[in-house]
Design a protein around this nucleic acid. Structure first.
Lengths: 154, 154
DNA sequence: TTACGTGCAAATAATTTGCAGTCCC
DNA sequence: GGGACTGCAAATTATTTGCACGTAA
């Protein structure tokens, strides 16, 4: 915020393959969020750089690595705002940490019991037949399937 | 612990319908947990009294209501131990709170977005066809389906 | 008896919030 | 310029832990 004023949009030219910054800005505007420097940068990490599952801490470290000046509080705010805007999905696993994944496709998740790792299950590899009837007054907003894995004894 | 010594096992005779305390003791012994006063009492609340989904806080309040002298730390310990023993299942939803449900049947869950409410989906009302192939070295331990509900706009 | 369990209070860990300064439109 | 956004640090919330005492086997 003080030592990076000259890197307003680029964070080094090598990171600009495909120049997705404009796309990110559009994406943010479309959901009513001001494309601020932090949001655009974090959006780039999440949507252009291929980070699919992150916790607040992971995104923070990723941002540090990319020389994106951002505070942890803003990471939390941004994850929340992106989630509320529908750009991300919260995925809460055992333990107290929340994970977020990019929400642009329909998929489910493998999670390994003790590990902090989440693996996508492509939508066509799983099939939920016969959804239950929701209680009166409610409709199904979405269905999350979490397939918990166990290391094969070895 | 000091004012309830005379209620060692009964907590009032009216609560003993069917006298499930012995069953609870057996259940605990079977999984290698000493049937202490607290564990038996909490087990009774969870398994005999029909409490199906609880958070630590809910179980604590329930225990207070039943005049079961138990500390919050013991609630946490007990929930953890029961879960490790396979008597309970942890169900982590959005937000920081963990929920636990009795694990003796195969079922999934409805959850309503903003509310602290969990509703069982009977196993026969949902059907996951075509499970995905787990990554090499792993096997599927269990599949959790969470159907998120939204109040029909009113 | 003796190891295991429990209660208390203090310690952690993740996340949120209040407020002063900053930036986008 | 003005309201939305960010950063910092302090506050909250859920949960864990260390240790002295109590209790089941």
């Amino acid at each position: 915020m003080s030592d990076l004023t000259s890197q307003d949009q680029g964070y080094g030219t090598s990171a600009r393959q495909g120049c997705p910054f404009h796309d990110i800005r559009q994406k943010l505007r479309r959901v009513g969020l001001r494309p601020t420097r932090q949001r655009v940068s974090l959006g780039w990490v999440l949507f252009a750089k291929g980070q699919r599952h992150v916790s607040a801490e992971m995104l923070f470290e990723e941002a540090m690595k990319e020389r994106i000046p951002v505070s942890l509080a803003t990471i939390y705010n941004t994850l929340r705002q992106f989630t509320e805007a529908g750009l991300l999905r919260e995925l809460t696993l055992d333990g107290a940490k929340a994970y977020f994944d990019t929400a642009d496709h329909d998929h489910h998740h493998f999670v390994v019991d003790g590990e902090n790792r989440v693996i996508d299950i492509p939508a066509d590899e799983i099939d939920v037949a016969s959804l239950p009837v929701p209680p009166a007054g409610y409709e199904i907003a979405r269905v999350d399937v979490v397939v918990r894995l166990r290391k094969i004894d070895g």
